[in-house]
Amino acid sequence: MKAFLQRWGTAYGPPLVVLIVGTLLLEAYVRWTHVPIYLAPRPSDVILTLHRERAYLLAASWSTAKAALVGFGLSAGVGVAIALALASSAWVRRAFYPYTVFFQTVPIIAIAPMLSIWLAPGLKAVAACAFIVSVFPVIANTLAGLIATDPALVDLFRLYGASRTAAMLKLRFPAALPNVFIGLRVAAGLAVIGTVVAEFLVGELGEEQGLGVVIVGASHNGHSDRVFAAVLLASALGLTMFGAVNLVARRVLRNWHASART
């Protein structure tokens, strides 16, 4: 038990200390300088709002989480699949890779109405936006890993007569896994951002409304404490998804890759 607490303290102690000290300093700053609440609400007010409106805010968080998870899942699956296809041949890569940049640069605001028409407003359209925003890092990082496989090992597979598919599945993809997880870590945060933005463009209002709708409504109605409470929950969601990817990465990589041993 003592060892567990020590490990836990080492891992989570520093960020927790930064969080507590940072919150206290911000509270003190806002109180002493009398910053208007419409510019910066007191952290204590935000915490009280989180407690008082927990049912409403948690329901909105759950809606956002669902869309973000669907978008992230699509990014992971489609992103890796596209990277595998691009890595299969230099010609395919040269022909198609530039167009994947579309996903990174497309302004969601421009295509939101089309997504709303094709997929109907709500979860599907929001998740599609989250996918579009978050897929590129998965493609780019996975591809970088796939084409950086040690050439000596690739030659070895060829010498032993391994097929291209076998080389891809047994050598290049496993070797690229650290890169895949880098892409997934970036995509986890982007999926949440994409979801929140999409919610106030093509999201549902009412029982299924997500944090993006809460933020816009609260901002318009001057409830800055609620705005920041929702922002905190969106951050927590992103952090949770990031943590989950880290956890999976550690499990997958811990026996053979240096990045998962520290």
Partner: peptide
């Protein structure tokens, strides 16, 4: 009726 966020422009209105 179903309530949804206000999408940019009038494309959705024209389409539905």
């Amino acid at each position: 009726m179903k309530l949804t966020s206000n999408s940019p422009g009038i494309a959705t209105f024209l389409a539905n």
